[in-house]
Design a protein around this nucleic acid. Sequence first.
DNA 1: CCTTGACTCTGACGTTACGTCATCCTTTAC
DNA 2: GTAAAGGATGACGTAACGTCAGAGTCAAGG
Lengths: 252, 252
Amino acid sequence: MFKIKEVAEMAGVSVRTLHHYDHIELLQPESVTTAGYRLYTHKNLERLQQILFFKEIGFALDEIKSILDRPDFDRQRALRTHKKLLMEKKERLEKMILTVENTLRALERDERMENEEMFKGFNMEDIKKHQEKYAHEAREKYGKEIVEQSEKRVAHYNQNDWSGIQSKMNELFSLIASRMKFGPADQDIQTAIGEWRQFITDHFYECTPEIFRGLGELYVADPRFTKNINKFGENFAPFLREAINIYCDNLK
Amino acid sequence: MFKIKEVAEMAGVSVRTLHHYDHIELLQPESVTTAGYRLYTHKNLERLQQILFFKEIGFALDEIKSILDRPDFDRQRALRTHKKLLMEKKERLEKMILTVENTLRALERDERMENEEMFKGFNMEDIKKHQEKYAHEAREKYGKEIVEQSEKRVAHYNQNDWSGIQSKMNELFSLIASRMKFGPADQDIQTAIGEWRQFITDHFYECTPEIFRGLGELYVADPRFTKNINKFGENFAPFLREAINIYCDNLK
DNA sequence: CCTTGACTCTGACGTTACGTCATCCTTTAC
DNA sequence: GTAAAGGATGACGTAACGTCAGAGTCAAGG
């Protein structure tokens, strides 16, 4: 249970804002003390987060209310849409930054900019269109999902490759993980490494020792990858890299 | 000389907005016809651009007015400030995107997020903290045995660290993507590539030119990586590889 | 036990940046 | 010469809070 000021500070909004949200019934605290103090729960915080996401994208508060209160509201789906819209907004900002840069360059060379050139990134219509689409989509959620179909196709295309790799990867990595205590030069581990390389060669591309070493580096370097891979154990990524290096050394 | 609707469409604002700006004496057309029609010049457009820049950053209209009307107003200086602020805003957005991603992940794994974790990107103070942290890190960059510490460091990275890494990557890749049209040898792109390499060196291991080239190959060759990376644009992976190769060539 | 300072409450009016009519006048195209 | 499109001027509406005012609440310290 959090008091109003705590919540305000956590979320970076004013107390008055929370009062307002209570008043318009957008976000009402789970409970109220006998003295009338508002008390917020973690659930309330989740809703507040949702509200702020929608706000950032440009929805009005009453729209947000009706979206969040709909019984079929899907938080996960909403979040994915949020991400898309936020990235669009980011692109818009990037365009604006380019415009500023162009303006600066033009100013330096004492040139004159094209009229439309001056306002790139300001036009919000793209974003608005997307918002409308989102609202429409959500409203007709039980209609046909044409938009999703295209996404699925792309996802599906890779899904085959993915699950193939994934299961092979899991198999090999589990084996390796189970033998970590024997060190990266362990015979069974080295065999598994070789199999892994062969698998890549068979299914994707010629995995030269050089590339293979790079792959090992990648396991450590790419945060998304590392995170996935470290579920096989503490320090699994560096261990794997080391094992790959030993494997490649022994090829000579 | 442009009529009001033309200007509105060029800049992506409403006619009413221009009326309003005229009324509050923020932007008054150079001339008016006998019938009372507003006529805007290129100079007026420049001022409008300025206004919109300031607005995007969050200034109030009367503040903008007093800024633009000050006799010592330096457009070039202002633009440079704009750029900085816009980039900060972009970072804030990137953070929000990360927060959305984290929320999604937590939702998938049915985890519960930390209370403050939920609101990253919403209040600006976080940004400052992160910047301080980065500055601190950089200051201590000249400590001892960085390379050998790499593995240990990685092992102790927490969620925050990963977020930082991811956002740095996103930042650099976004920048590169936004300048793809200038070709892989573009100066800014090359600078970003250098930064990226430095970043790997700082956080993981000494990234030699050889390894770096290998990474470039992997971006193209490895389907999983390509998939992730191509969200930055069509053919982003091959483009990146080419840019890396150019970068490495120039090191000799 | 009482005080004090930080926090909270509920109105209620103010503010910013336009949106939205309504009503009327110009200009342009056929 | 007439309609459609665009422009002008009030005037009121609105969204999302900000900003007091006046009063109660709570936790710590003297």
